[in-house]
Write a protein that binds this DNA or RNA. Structure first.
Lengths: 243, 243
DNA sequence: AACCTATTGTCCGGTAGCGAACATATGGGG
DNA sequence: CCCCATATGTTCGCTACCGGACAATAGGTT
């Protein structure tokens, strides 16, 4: 690991058997992913599939009114662009970089060819997709039943799990867009968490001070999603060495 | 079509090329699917994949508190048990028959073998899964942003699209479970729709009287989902005849 | 050092849906 | 044909969040 950037910072790529990884490596292109960049737009043709390494990408739906809601979140545990291998080529949702960093991308054609081989990448991609489905389902449940401060905890923990360290660069305004609530609501919820010593924030920087108590405060949705991701990924193929 | 029951009442099976269909036919087992039957339970091993024909199955999550929320709905346009081919084998959610009727089932082993062939069933199943994902995503959005009477419209229309006729056998109590709200709330919302002449209901029977006005009243979520299902399914393979 | 813009804080009334308790009605089984 | 379980209707106070308007503060820029 001579370079600071390595495709294996992405857990799916890291889990590939040596042979499959070697085949993909020449086509993996390092890419900076800046905050706010739209990885894809609703209905748009996708030319690439993305493997975040140090970035986080939000999948969200923007309504006619302009209001939005996050559907799921992807970081170094996954990939962005499942509709490429699911067959639809596009989706009605939007993917936006929520935390800047890097990632690797693969041309759509290369990805599809590899997927069609029916090898390990196919298995990994499908298992990841199932985990993503669980996250979406739980988002629906959480939106229906849980109070904002619990949802905020869920969101913070899910985001932190996909980054190094305990700090997020993220304004309350942006969090409000993700959660699909007013910014004022986030101010209030975050204020409570700060008053209780769970987090500390200032002007776009949020630090989680007490992760243990955070996990006590969050609704069950977080654990459901986490458990399912841990169960499904990374998929170690019995008897096959990864690099 | 000599029998009243035919696997091709399910749109996915109907879209299979003749050859693939013939290969599966001996393993397709007709099955009555009674109201309330749990097709699968959270975390449970699935022995079969199900293709509803005249029934509707709800995918829902039940929380620790007992409260529930529907995640998606499946009828003759789809299949139940995607985790079998996605690789996870189980899911944290529950699948319950919401409208009794029939379906066909396929042993897990047969399904997996067929899927691994990389043929048309694989393509169809994955495209259906993407449509299902859209439905889940839109459920999350709808839960966040839309009023109960609009959500009720969405739910009624999605259900009707998966049945013959314009009538549902469904109590307000059950609808409330699906939507994750109180029964009283459904009574109120349904009362409004009835007062406006859109529907008519009594003791577990709901008739949609004016579908056109219903579609005006529903939130955008319904159209997003419908459009995506129409776009992705059924997937006609160019140049390959189905029976 | 002053400024300016992004970010966060606070207040107001309004409302949708909750939770609980209770009233009414209807239609299939005895 | 009557009964009664099941389904639907109504009320009350309550809370979380909305919508809008506006205040205060901080940190990078000139």
């Amino acid at each position: 690991m001579s370079s600071p950037h390595n495709p294996k910072q992405n857990h799916l790529l890291a889990a590939l058997p040596a042979e499959d990884y070697a085949r993909l490596l020449p086509d993996l292109e390092l890419l900076p992913m800046p905050l706010g960049w739209a990885v894809y737009e609703p209905g748009g043709q996708m030319g690439f599939m993305y493997f975040p390494t140090t970035s986080i990408v939000s999948l969200l739906y923007v309504m006619e009114s302009g209001a939005s809601a996050e559907i799921a979140i992807t970081g170094n545990e996954g990939l962005v662009g499942i509709s490429l291998f699911m067959g639809g080529e596009s989706t009605p949702s939007r993917a936006v970089v929520q935390s800047s960093g890097n990632g690797y991308r693969l041309k759509a054609g290369v990805l599809k060819r590899e997927f069609a081989l029916g090898g390990y990448l196919q298995h990994l991609a499908l298992r990841y997709t199932q985990a993503l489905i669980t996250q979406m389902a739980q988002t629906a449940v959480c939106n229906r039943h849980h109070a904002l401060d619990q949802q905020l905890c869920r969101w913070l923990l899910l985001s932190l799990d996909r980054l190094e360290g305990n700090e997020l660069v993220m304004t309350q305004e942006l969090i409000a867009n993700m959660l699909g609530v007013r910014r004022e609501g986030v101010t209030e919820a975050a204020g409570k968490l700060q008053a209780d010593g769970l987090i500390q924030y200032s002007r776009g920087h949020i630090k989680v001070l007490d992760r243990a108590r955070m996990e006590k405060r969050v609704c069950e949705c977080y654990a459901v999603v986490k458990k399912e991701f841990d169960r499904l990924l990374p998929y170690k193929i019995p008897g096959v060495p990864t690099t």
